[in-house]
Write a protein that binds this DNA or RNA. Sequence first.
DNA 1: AATGAATGAGGATTCATTCAT
DNA 2: GATGAATGAATCCTCATTCAT
Lengths: 192, 192, 192, 192
Amino acid sequence: MPKLGMEPIRRAALIDATIAEIGHAGSLDVTVSRIAKRAGVSSGLAHHYFGGKDDILLAAMRHVLRVYSEEVRSHLAQATTPGERLRAVVRASFAPSNFQPHTVSAWVNFYLLALSSDQAARLLRVYRGRLRSNLLHDMRPTLGDSAPAAAERIAALIDGLYLRHGLSDAPDGDAATALVLTALDHELKVQP
Amino acid sequence: MPKLGMEPIRRAALIDATIAEIGHAGSLDVTVSRIAKRAGVSSGLAHHYFGGKDDILLAAMRHVLRVYSEEVRSHLAQATTPGERLRAVVRASFAPSNFQPHTVSAWVNFYLLALSSDQAARLLRVYRGRLRSNLLHDMRPTLGDSAPAAAERIAALIDGLYLRHGLSDAPDGDAATALVLTALDHELKVQP
Amino acid sequence: MPKLGMEPIRRAALIDATIAEIGHAGSLDVTVSRIAKRAGVSSGLAHHYFGGKDDILLAAMRHVLRVYSEEVRSHLAQATTPGERLRAVVRASFAPSNFQPHTVSAWVNFYLLALSSDQAARLLRVYRGRLRSNLLHDMRPTLGDSAPAAAERIAALIDGLYLRHGLSDAPDGDAATALVLTALDHELKVQP
Amino acid sequence: MPKLGMEPIRRAALIDATIAEIGHAGSLDVTVSRIAKRAGVSSGLAHHYFGGKDDILLAAMRHVLRVYSEEVRSHLAQATTPGERLRAVVRASFAPSNFQPHTVSAWVNFYLLALSSDQAARLLRVYRGRLRSNLLHDMRPTLGDSAPAAAERIAALIDGLYLRHGLSDAPDGDAATALVLTALDHELKVQP
DNA sequence: AATGAATGAGGATTCATTCAT
DNA sequence: GATGAATGAATCCTCATTCAT
């Protein structure tokens, strides 16, 4: 029973299903059929809307990135000083909307996907660029030339915590946040 | 051209080929045939020696872990003070034997494999436990109760750098080492 | 050329093809591809509808059994006295619908399959139980306590004739029927 | 450690192992490797002695037939009258040496093999011919022209009991013998 | 819009067979 | 005589993708 205006609903359902399936499988070895079934549609429809499996995956990656960006933006909106802004970025990174097992699993898998997919690599570069520029922008005033290295450390620490904590059964966003905030303190206090 | 005592040679060749293929593909979507071909044998032989694809993958993971362990051990052998030991562990982590694109790619893929394979999860746990205990052992004297969190940060930073730098075309082990050593300084100097 | 409601048609075609292939090969060493090709579909479709080779085989066995059962039922419908009923069961066993080379070959192969497949064993048990109870029910009035042994003999004779005559190029159902009817006479006349 | 005069020992061991494996698997889907392993030799040796898998199978079939023949011969040696001879043949058919689960399973499988192997068909024909002529020879004096049909019935009954009883976990040769002897009585008493 | 039918390529795995030693 | 190394063909099965309806 085809209906009008179903497209955005179907796309969203399929993207959610994709992330859920990846989270469930722990890998990108996910079949279009399973994704479609979880979304409550036929596999044919998934192709109809997205074109192919790769496009579904990319769309899901884009979605994860968008949610993350929005989280960062909304956190940043309430920050005023550089220090607050930095902490906002960190907190956003481990906010519940991102730091759920399924999402993290999908996210890490997309990280790897970037090794074999140009489009995924491009998306990943955008994420990295944004995180880096966010950190850098607010570290430069305090740290000057040592800001890039410090930003790199914080960024890597965040990614590392995704890898280490995000993949566990019950990731603790607050604990992860605390770890990074402490590292941030170190970076900002211990100036060269 | 059957010869005697080929088993260890074949196994080593197949494991190397596995890592190379994973590195090349950037994922675990690697066929046994390709691995075998790269190792210069038939796919049947790969099964003969390992039993199945999963076993090949696990054997490769075990190999990566073993190489890493040996690198750490050999670095630790030349260290005396706790600080030297900590730096040794860090340096070992980014030593050329581990920090090659292929190896890092394989390593990160194994990290993910642990999400869907119990055996891989077990191996990963061993790695994590060892790294953690190495760091902890030499941080405790200086940091006391805040050692665990500090160790966690350093470990996550290392993993994050694997993810961020190791997957690039030409990973720079020295740069990564420098980043962690600085973080280590922060941790050790800025005591609570 | 996808159409709707093809499932029952495909299933039937695949089951027929399975029996024909088994008959042709004389063994269960039949590939799914050949079955599918004979049925005019791809091998993928065979899996799609049945799940796997074993399921195809079992479905074919079930089909053979069902055809047999229906033959017996339709023969029994026209019988009134115990003697007529017994003869009806015998005649049904060698009716053309069952006693065709392909079918008999498949049947005997299924007999053996029961040695290695629990599900096949279960199906076989049903067949045996039914044949036995049919014979027993109509022998008991005449033979009393010696009915079970007599029924066993008739049942074994039927199976033996399947083995001996059914596997020949041109099985003669009438001859086989005559042999069993004579044995039946012996059983019923020569009472203890 | 090659030794001299091992051939007959190896051949016998391999044939025994073949029958055991077929009995165990319940089908001819038995690998040469398993047969060889059970016989305590390498798979290469099995080929060396027999040429190929088919030859191993046929050798095993021949062996089963030979054992059966010898059993019949030895039973016949002690019989004098036609009736005794007939009973001797029946008893031989269910003697422990033939009527063991493994052997019966192999035997029935060989029966089927005859459908796809000319050589197996030839061997089977020999068995049938011998059984038939044994029965016929001693029935003709009593039954005259109806001897062939009677012999056919007894032979089919024997085969049917192989199929029905021989494949069960604990075949009861005595029970099977009793069933056939009773049928034999019927045949001989109830003359036309 | 949506489905289910259908395909076919690709991959893991098994195994008979061969051969150097 | 005997082994184990090695191959490659064969087979089951999965799955992305296409298409008529």
